[in-house]
Write a protein that binds this DNA or RNA. Structure first.
Lengths: 158, 158
DNA sequence: AAAAAGGTTAGCATCAAGCTAAGTACTTTC
DNA sequence: GAAAGTACTTAGCTTGATGCTAACCTTTTT
């Protein structure tokens, strides 16, 4: 019963998908510029940034040996990288209550905001949203919800 | 004449803005993970990446002295960075037809896709969109159009 | 013809990141 | 409780990228 109209629906779907991707392309240009702005003022090496991103992602923080293993470097090397992050005020080392050999490493608020600023750069900011016609805002919310739902669906099954 | 009902509309607006930002927050977590994935396999220094991003952004390409000036380094230093980008196959140098002293530097397709992969990582990909209910897809398009319009508006006046 | 501009190369200094080896402090095992 | 193992730091080293100045070549401008 859904056979009829499918063809026409698929045409509209493809047309909309193309439209959205074209709009997305324009946004990405702005996104690239914003990302570049942030990277220009970033006084870190790429390795330091990578480690910091892991620290920000994992709320429980990391350990020297764990990070060394994930990055495929020696513990001594990772110790040096962490030194520099701590010196920059982006991470802290603290004692692990369970095992006094390990030093738990966490991103500081500064470290977290440094990393988030690289990602948060999308155009869907409060000041943009607040100036949108209400009707469009409702539509955007519906679309976001649907995408969010779909992403969870696909990451479960795929 | 628009005074009445504004209060109620503003409440709904704020509520929707919060909803969208919360959904965006969830997306950003995934975005961060994707960005990290790409950075992990990136065999570049941050300075090389920054220069490459400028090359990708400016379609006409760059010149050694122009790039040196924007980055605040000597021409000799920039020449070295460009050497490494060329060696990696991410940029090319070619003669400038107007002035045979300058060498025009362009990002290669590989360089462009390397940079784009860092930014394109959003969840609004074709395979996600194609699985969305048509109604939601229409709503998303409407929302995207509105945001795109609003961003242009605000960047003109602001 | 002289001066100026764009670019490359050579030579040097500095710093981050990588390693191994040695040492400290704590846990686990026997 | 002694021995073995684990987590981490520090010292000493090598390599590679970035930065500089100085010298040079080529091309354009004056």
């Amino acid at each position: 019963m859904r056979e009829e109209g499918t063809d026409q629906g698929e045409h509209e779907r493809e047309s909309i998908v193309r439209d959205i991707q074209s709009l997305k392309g324009a946004m990405e240009e702005a996104l690239l510029a914003t990302l570049l702005q942030h990277l220009l003022t970033l006084d870190l090496t790429l390795q330091q940034l990578r480690v910091l991103m892991v620290l920000v992602s994992t709320k429980e923080g990391g350990t020297g040996s764990g990070l060394a293993a994930s990055f495929g470097v020696s513990l001594a090397s990772m110790s040096g990288v962490l030194d520099r992050l701590v010196t920059h005020g982006l991470a802290t080392r603290s004692a692990d209550p369970d095992d006094h050999r390990v030093r738990r490493v966490h991103a500081t608020p500064l470290g977290a905001s440094t990393v988030r600023s690289l990602v948060v750069a999308g155009p869907f900011q409060g000041d943009v949203l607040r100036n949108l016609p209400l009707e469009d805002l409702r539509a955007l919310e519906q679309g976001f919800r649907a995408v969010s739902r779909q992403v969870s669906l696909m990451s479960e099954s795929g």
